[in-house]
Nucleic acid binder design. Structure first.
Lengths: 281, 281
DNA sequence: CCCCAAATGTAGTAATATTACAACTTATAC
DNA sequence: GTATAAGTTGTAATATTACTACATTTGGGG
């Protein structure tokens, strides 16, 4: 637990002098971590052992250990967990909050991932005759991105953000095809339909969605991403980034499974792109 | 800057013994922060002053100060930027490495951002009669995502991933239009052309690209994102995530500028979407 | 092979933190 | 009100830890 919060919460437990120390630290934690026990004692107008006792009361081994904990609390850009954007935030505030909460969501997503499922998904993708990526709305751009990645692998790959095209494409599926469906909520009706159609034609359906959703129930394999979505803004933000990172993971797993020679191919693709570019000076 | 990155990057600068220290720390940073200089010296098979010199070479005041920095690096969910995926990595390894390096890149991107430029960009976007988002390849899906976001704002917004459509669209630009061009390298020829056409018609051109690139030179305003791209995989990964997060920032700035009433509109858009969904139990 | 510079280690010194204990404060019982 | 015990705080001694100055070693070039 964050030691700064701990200090402000345990105020009641502290003795008079200890509270002085707490105040001195809270007033300027950044200075505190760069001070010696003597300096901090002076700043708080108490003796050195008092500071030491203060540290121990917070379940640290002593002053140096306490400083380490404090340093870590300060390092986390997110001292107070839910850094939602406020009405009154200026550009620097909302920029930092969005970046920080995006990073935090990625961390949560990473921890919620089931590696064995990822591995299985990579298995299925490498064996596929044809891969389709479908999504709608915000998830459409994720599917679009997946197309861009897997297209380089020289595998037949398909992407549509049009419901009818998605349905028609799935009508012609075979059991050797893999269909990847992307949806944060997993409750988009037409995407659930697409899943059923694909399954009806024996295709393998991989869902990148939240578990226990209607879509999840129709999939052969579900990669569930439990990302806390910031609903304040009424737009998918963090969920989408997590999905994209997952696509990166799948693409990387794909290339690793294919071996070194395959990666030389990739380099050639990249080299070809260079012709459409201005030279790097 | 993250001191763990610094250690792995500066390997070349270190002397033989210093490298031993670096290895010992990288092998088990968690232990390192709880050790005294003597313990760490033993673990690395060097003398105490060597450890001290090692710390100073990393621009810290000494060993205790170094430990503080190290503690802060460990506290951030983002251990190393340079955790490249290896040939031999298993699914859990490459998954974690990709998530971690993505988070690290976001942190780097955040620090490289110029807030005043963001603020200016939000200004321009809110005043625009029509907003266009153009990108090619991997950046196309970012533009696609931007479309999805800004479309909800009830502003005329346009997106094309087709070069000809992009050009034609820019032919009809006016000075009240804003064109946002997305490109990691900023060296894609046809996108530079598009910038010139748009500028020729007095439109405002915002570039989300790397600074000092040919594209940057053609833009009215450049939001530069300096993200270290992992080139091992020959695919844009981190740069794209940073671009998307930047889009989130711009969209958020946009809504904040428009005020509360505007945000109620957004809620209605979201509520409308609900009809296409299965109910949440 | 020798010299010089860089690197590393040794031993002493300085700083910092911890402990033991004494003095003081406060609360409570009589 | 006073005695006493418990709790709090400070002082001074001690132990730990980090740093500095200098000696020794190593390695590379003439």
């Amino acid at each position: 637990m964050n030691i700064l919060e701990k200090i402000s919460q345990n105020q009641a437990v502290f003795s008079k002098s200890e509270r002085k120390v707490a105040e001195a630290i809270l007033a300027n934690p950044q200075t505190a971590i760069h001070s010696s026990i003597a300096t901090l004692a002076k700043m708080s107008n108490v003796s050195e052992p008092t500071v030491n006792r203060f540290c121990r009361r917070l379940d640290t081994k002593g002053f140096p250990d306490f400083k380490l904990h404090l340093a870590q609390s300060l390092a986390n850009g997110t001292p107070y967990v839910n850094r939602h954007v406020e009405e009154t935030d200026g550009p620097d505030e909302y920029t930092n909050k969005i970046f920080e909460s995006t990073m935090a969501s990625l961390e949560v997503a990473r921890q919620s991932l089931d590696i064995s499922v990822i591995n299985r998904a990579v298995d299925l993708l490498t064996q596929a005759q044809k891969i389709s990526f479908f999504g709608l709305g915000a998830s459409a751009s994720v599917a679009h991105d997946a197309l861009n990645k897997f297209f380089r692998f020289n595998v037949p790959v398909v992407y549509f953000d049009d419901i009818l095209m998605q349905r028609m494409s799935c009508m012609n599926c075979t059991e050797e095809d893999v269909v990847v469906l992307i949806s944060h909520t997993g409750r988009t009706k037409s995407l659930v339909d697409v899943a059923q159609i694909a399954r009806g034609n024996d295709a393998t359906v991989i869902g990148i969605t939240s578990k226990d959703s209607p879509l999840a129930r129709e999939c052969s394999l579900v990669i569930s991403l439990d990302v806390p979505e910031d609903t304040d803004m009424y737009m998918p933000m963090a969920s989408r980034i997590a999905q994209l990172t997952l696509i990166d993971v799948l693409a990387t797993g794909f290339t690793l499974r294919r071996g070194t020679k395959f990666r030389e191919n990739l380099k050639r693709v990249k080299d070809t792109l260079r012709e459409s570019r201005y030279d790097k000076r």
